[in-house]
Computed example of a mutant assay.
Amino acid sequence: MSEIAGLQFSTPAMRILENEHRYLSYLMGEWHAAVLWFEQDNISLDEGRVRLQELRVAIMDFVITLKKHTEKEEEHFFPLLGQYIGFDQGPLAGIQEEHREIDGYIGHFLHHTGKEAQLFSVEDLRAAVRDAGEAFEVLTVHFVKEETVVFPMAETLLSPRDRERLSSKLNTLIT
């Protein structure tokens, strides 16, 4: 594996996905700071409501980018790797389940923080933000699993021709 530019993978397709993980992690760090703010003692209700709306906007923006990344994996990468390792069990099944879990946490957060959030108590605010925190945790572990299990597997197993075709399909922007 190559360490050029701080990336660990040598094949272009895996480098594209790895680089997207770096960008998504950066974005996550920005909104996760707001999640952590809600863990403080004695937060004000008015400031909590403002921060919740800021967090909501940040997550809605983040979801657009995350969805583009996830679609690339699910439409191009997973089907190709699945031809080599199968789909029903093993790492691809778990990774795809995590995609659904992440969507669930983010969807739940967005659903429960709409217009009615202006009526929330401090405890309601904290409870709503927990879903965003869970999404952050699952995403963080998810990226590690992909980068330590799935991406190395792909670099080893995919034929040179499949790696080249995959790279051309993945070489699109997520922003």
Rank of each mutant, 00 (worst) to 15 (best):
A34H: 11
I43L: 12
L66E: 01
T175N: 14
R51N: 11
I174V: 13
D61W: 02
G29C: 09
R130P: 01
G82E: 04
G86W: 05
F151N: 00
S159F: 06
F151C: 01
A117I: 06
L173T: 11
F78V: 05
A132D: 00
S159Q: 07
A135L: 08
L173P: 05
L119N: 13
T113K: 03
D46N: 14
H99C: 01
I95T: 15
K67R: 13
L110A: 00
S44N: 10
L66N: 01
Q89T: 12
M1T: 09
I102K: 13
E97Y: 04
Q118Y: 07
G94D: 06
H99Y: 06
E74H: 13
G90H: 07
F109P: 00
R22V: 06
L80V: 04
E71T: 10
R22Q: 09
T148P: 08
L170A: 03
H21I: 05
A117N: 13
G29Q: 09
F87S: 13
V50S: 12
P160G: 07
A33H: 08
E155G: 15
M153N: 13
I59N: 00
D61T: 09
A135D: 12
L158N: 01
E146S: 12
E164W: 07
R161S: 08
H99W: 04
A128H: 07
L173G: 13
L24F: 05
L158Y: 02
R163A: 12
I43C: 09
G29H: 08
L119C: 08
L166P: 01
L52M: 11
Y26C: 02
H108N: 09
V129G: 07
T175G: 15
F143L: 03
D61V: 10
